[in-house]
């Protein structure tokens, strides 16, 4: 299992559009991927899961990936977060 912690810098937090982009990206991976904030965790491939956490600017999220392509998945996620959020 691979894990990544990231603090959101986008002033609008994880709003609909980047959430959608993130999900599009994650759908390519076999691994089970979760997103967690303050101990609440959700399936990161589900739009309602991601948006349901209502992540705002300055909050830290933990992303985990478990599966055959977990390594590359976490790398891609990190790049995506840095670029977009």
């Amino acid at each position: 299992m691979k894990e990544l912690k990231y603090t959101i810098t986008d002033p609008e937090g994880i709003h609909a559009r980047p959430a959608g982009e993130l999900i599009k990206l994650l759908k390519e991976f076999e691994s089970a991927i979760t997103i967690a904030k303050d101990g609440k965790s959700a399936d990161a491939k589900r739009i309602f899961g991601v948006m349901g956490l209502a992540v705002k600017q300055g909050q830290e999220i933990t992303m985990t990936a478990q599966g055959a392509d977990e390594e590359i998945a976490i790398q891609k996620i990190e790049a995506f977060l840095k670029e977009n959020l």
């Binding site: 609909a16 559009r17 959430a19 959608g20 399936d43 491939k45 589900r46 739009i47 309602f48 899961g49």
Partner: peptide, 10 residues
């Protein structure tokens, strides 16, 4: 986004 919502597993 709406398409994703309609496909959301939950």
């Amino acid at each position: 986004i709406h398409q994703m919502m309609l496909q959301d597993d939950g």
